[in-house]
Design a protein around this nucleic acid. Structure first.
Lengths: 213, 213
DNA sequence: GCTAACTTGTGAAGAAATTCACAAGCCGCG
DNA sequence: CGCGGCTTGTGAATTTCTTCACAAGTTAGC
């Protein structure tokens, strides 16, 4: 299969949410134009995104809501549950463990790890914090699909190495660092402070634009 | 000024973190190549990113760490603090209010709002939850620079409208929705479930690649 | 002061993503 | 059954982003 752009996948994920809304409201068909309006893009973009995976619509009519939504779920691999472990039981890790929005979407948090002896053994939302050094020998991590890395930036790379050694092939990292991993391991970096800095730039730029007008 | 790509800004934000590391370690110069290696990009990309804003380096030598880092802070608008309000005191909103990583980077959380009468008046990390309908009349929101929207997706657009009416020009939204706002309002969408779906896609795709090998 | 070893800054080339534009197909109606 | 009104799917055109490649500038050593 031709390599699919990240931006395409992100949009598919978004379209799926709109379809779920439509499904809940009992609507049966939707056009690329309607999806585009909700997603802030163009109908051509929607059709192009879908075209990488097949042709799911009917000319003149649009897309069947339940069919397209089931197709997207299949494309995105959401027909099954995924087991997620969290590494780092600090503020971010603990907040994620308590957030139930993930399990609602099929991402089940099965374990949480830390390397601080003071934290090991404590409970976070029903999960016992485990010792990080046990990661590779733990049955929970052996069965895990995705690791969330929520450790200090300075420990991110060694943590990633542990995760890779444990046979996990997908990482969501909160550390603002490029993680070096083998090609067959997918990494997504998430960092809200960086997003805020993007807004800071936009605000600053807006002000200077006005001054120079 | 020529429009700068989002991806460029995100990288500048990342470079800045590396520079801060270097600064802390007392190093005085850095080359585009070293920045690139840490950021997972190329030296040409680093130089191009910087070139939109001026030329900060010395040929043959590289960049002065303190100077470049100060320049980037200025470009990103991080020489001042920003006042951030959070709207929605649910799991996400409350977690953000308690997280101190933002204030460390100059994003001060000054107020939190909700429209659930049962929540109004309660404390979250030293902040009293305020009534959402008071948003536009509140001095806190009038002085706010950035609004974080952490309400259910179905309420996101009306919340965004309130925020815009309150004169706020930057929004970070956790709702997987395109928000309709005037051109001079910057919006960043953050959604971890969508990132996880990206990983789900990568894992699914990896598996099917292997099957077909 | 000259040479060698580096590294920047930047047009030009190349790659990737988005938008255009239109043929082809579908539905409903008379 | 044929026509008019829609909407998809997709090559081609366009725009945007990244990489290449090299002249120009800097330092260090001798």
């Amino acid at each position: 299969m031709k390599r699919i752009a990240d931006s395409t996948i992100r949009r598919l994920s978004l379209y799926l949410r709109f379809l779920e809304d439509f499904e809940a409201r009992g609507l049966s068909t939707i056009s690329s134009d309607e999806l585009a309006a909700r997603g802030g893009t163009t109908s051509a973009q929607v059709r192009k995104d879908l075209s990488f995976f097949g042709s799911f619509g009917k000319r003149g009519l649009g897309y069947s809501v339940p069919e397209l939504s089931s197709r997207l779920r299949k494309i995105l691999g959401l027909e099954r549950d995924w087991r997620v472990i969290i590494i780092g039981a600090g503020k971010i890790g603990a907040a994620l463990a308590q957030y139930n929005g993930f399990s609602e979407r099929g991402f089940l948090i099965t374990a949480i790890y830390d390397n601080d002896p003071g934290k090991i053994g404590r409970q976070v939302d029903g999960l016992t914090i485990r010792a990080l050094e046990r990661l590779s020998s733990d049955p929970e991590s052996a069965a895990a699909d995705i690791a969330v890395i929520a450790v200090p930036a300075s420990a991110a790379q060694t943590t990633a190495d542990l995760v890779v050694d444990a046979g996990i092939h997908a990482i969501m990292s909160f550390a603002p660092r490029r993680l070096r991993v083998p090609d067959d391991v997918a990494v997504k970096m998430v960092n809200m402070a960086m997003e805020l800095e993007g807004l800071s730039f936009a605000l600053t730029n807006r002000d200077s634009d006005r001054e120079s007008d």
